[in-house]
Amino acid sequence: MRGRTNGMFRTKLLAVGILALVAVDARAADIAVKDAWVRGAPTGIKVSAGYARIENAGPVADRLLSVSTPAAGDASVHESSEKEGMMSMEPVEALTIPPKGAVELKPGSYHIMLMRLPGALAPGGTVPMEFTFERAGKITVDAKIAPLSAKEMPR
């Protein structure tokens, strides 16, 4: 009797362990960062913006906590908005990616504010960008450098 209980307990533990592993795996695979691009920055312009489409295929929400890139001394999530005719940008603490959903970072809306650029960003190249999510962890993608005047990702 006692042995049997122990055995069942172990089986349950094992099952929980496998479930947990599956869950962790699924989390990382659930988030995808697609079509990442940044605006080019000519010499003398120390600021740029990065954009991407973040998709969440999983059943739970995730949150984008931070972004880092060697192309900027300072990277943070911002949202542009217009209130009573005033255009402004506000830092976003953490950007929620809804389950079975997506968030588009695009001009005039959410963007990665890139400040203190160490050098010019020449269109045509790429820069690595590391996105850190609360659940999915770190995802690194190569962002295409578009002309300063671009409105969308270069094709």
Partner: peptide, 11 residues
């Protein structure tokens, strides 16, 4: 120093 909105407007 307005990387998001101003470039689009100028374009």
């Amino acid at each position: 120093f307005c990387p998001d909105i101003c470039p689009t407007s100028l374009q």
